[in-house]
Computed example of a mutant assay.
Amino acid sequence: MELREVLRRRRMVRRFDPGRPVGRAALDAVLCAAQRAPSAGFSQGWDFVVLTGEDEREAFWSAVARGSSDGPSGGSSGEPDAWLRGVSAAPALVLCLSDPDAYLDRYAEPDKGWTDRDPARWPVPYWDVDTGMAAMAMLLAAVDEGLGALFFGVPPTAHDRVRKAHGIPGNRRLVGVVALGHERTRVGGSSRTRPRRPAAEVVHWGTFGGADPGLSGVAGEGPSDR
């Protein structure tokens, strides 16, 4: 599939068909794409915990929901809402973990020279940024494999329980989760109620608020209209 078609088709899927498993070849392709993501200093400070067994996935959802009213399930009645019922049916979950130490160690090497390993040197936590890019690569690869996918976060109050449930070391950060499967029914999300911001609003030329010089004085449709 052409890249522009993958980008056009990519969307967050929130209802999965539990009766259609993710084939191993497709899953491997998605995970391979994640490992091709860029990383600062080629640190590759990410790990992916893949949950395909029913018991594994139930352990994850139980860890997320237990004793929490701010989890993905929403609400505090104890009953799963439509979001949780739809997403928990996904036959594969990939926990996306970042490893800050991998970056601090890498940049303490001779070609970088930050021997103090001070996180304050980093303008933003690139270990999380790069893991997010790996997750995006998975979302795009899923489209190419004919799968539906969703990236979602885990409430901070549940992180320790998820670590315990799946043996995740304490020095790993749980950036988010990619759910994979086949879409069951399409539901309207924010993209149905909130229009995509046009390029003229989000792309700034030369300075914040600067207009596209290539469109100056040109009438007709702009890139955002196509």
Rank of each mutant, 00 (worst) to 15 (best):
K164T: 13
P156S: 12
D55V: 00
R10N: 04
S88I: 10
P100K: 12
L51W: 00
A90Q: 05
L3W: 10
R24C: 03
S73T: 11
A82T: 11
P110V: 01
T115D: 05
P155L: 10
G222M: 07
G78C: 06
P18N: 02
L95M: 00
D160M: 11
R161S: 13
D105C: 10
H204Y: 07
H159E: 13
W205R: 06
M138Q: 09
R66G: 09
A142T: 00
S98A: 14
G209Q: 08
P125A: 01
R197L: 15
F152D: 04
R10M: 09
A137Q: 09
A108T: 09
L180I: 12
P195H: 09
D55I: 00
P72R: 14
R11A: 06
L51Y: 01
W122Y: 13
L51Q: 00
D212H: 01
L97R: 02
G74K: 11
P195S: 14
H159F: 11
Y126H: 14
A211E: 08
G78L: 03
R8V: 08
V154D: 09
Q44M: 13
R66V: 10
P195V: 11
V64K: 01
V49N: 05
G167N: 12
W61V: 04
R36D: 09
P155M: 10
E201M: 08
S69Q: 09
W127Q: 09
A200S: 15
V143H: 02
V87H: 02
V154I: 15
V64P: 03
P21N: 05
W127S: 12
C32G: 15
